[in-house]
């Protein structure tokens, strides 16, 4: 089957084997520097996976590969059984049901909070639809519900540019939710958040797992411990260890290269 002939919005990834994402032997190099080095990673449907690793370990690059921003030199990336993500571009991958929150919050600054969510709703993204589109009652309810979840209801009509850093992170998570994705990639969601904000984020992400598969990149070990079931440690572009938080923390290799350096485990 050729990808061009499918209607991805309806098909969805084939997860009969329980896996939503397969990455095998993926390598990416920038001017000879290997940002990802023969990486293998499998994400189960509905799981909440944490990805940790020192600065420059390749975490963001990994997300770039999944979302089509960076093309790997070698390796395969498939979504469910049937979609070879390397044959799709960013907007197609997004429409297949993979949503991403960036490390640096990127919301549409000139638009209102509400409109940021409006643009992110799961719907036909073609120009003709957009020219004539009016929000349905159901879509308005969706937006209201998300605004409530992310705690931005009273900011709905303000331009996103005036939000605080933490609020922008929330808005971006809300934009992800609006797209009703199957797989959520969340890069450093609590960076710059207060402790209570981080706690709410943890609750939110935990509640999303199950219905969605969620991959979270985070430096904050306390946060990782509070949400993670399975943790993957990345080191110099490949997987160093994988397991429960406790197993990871007692792994001698990990201690040596990562937790030891950071010293905050």
């Amino acid at each position: 089957m050729r990808p061009a002939m499918m209607t991805p919005e309806q098909t969805g990834p084939d997860t009969r084997h329980g896996m939503i994402l397969y990455m095998e032997n993926v390598s990416v190099s920038f001017d000879g520097f290997k940002a990802l080095n023969d990486l293998n990673l499998y994400i189960k449907e509905g799981e909440l996976r944490c990805l940790i690793g020192a600065n420059g370990a390749g975490k963001t690059t990994l997300m770039d590969v999944i979302t089509g921003k960076t093309r790997p030199d070698t390796g395969t990336v498939s979504y469910g059984q049937q979609f070879n993500l390397l044959q799709h571009n960013e907007e197609q991958i997004s429409r297949l049901g993979i949503g991403r929150k960036f490390q640096k919050p990127t919301v549409f600054e000139a638009l209102s909070v509400k409109d940021n969510l409006y643009l992110s709703l799961k719907m036909d993204k073609g120009i003709w639809t957009s020219l004539w589109h009016n929000l349905s009652g159901e879509q308005k309810d969706d937006i209201d519900r998300i605004l409530h979840t992310i705690g931005l209801t009273e900011h709905r009509d303000r331009p996103a540019s005036v939000l605080s850093h933490g609020q922008k992170q929330w808005l971006e998570i809300g934009m992800l939710l609006a797209a009703k994705p199957k797989l959520l990639l969340v890069d450093e969601p609590v960076a710059g958040m207060t402790v209570s904000e981080a706690e709410r984020t943890a609750e939110l992400l935990t509640s999303l797992a199950g219905e969605h598969s969620v991959v979270v990149v985070e430096h904050d070990m306390g946060f990782v411990r509070s949400i993670a079931r399975t943790v993957t440690v990345l080191h110099q572009g490949s997987v160093l260890a994988e397991g429960t938080m406790d197993a990871i923390q007692s792994d001698p290799e990990v201690k040596k290269v990562y937790l030891g350096e950071e010293g905050n485990a």
Binding site: E90, K125, A179
Partner: peptide
């Protein structure tokens, strides 16, 4: 105008 790559990640061509 403000962030074209972000628009693509939201699924717009």
């Amino acid at each position: 105008r403000d962030s074209e790559s972000r628009v693509r990640f939201v699924g717009y061509n």
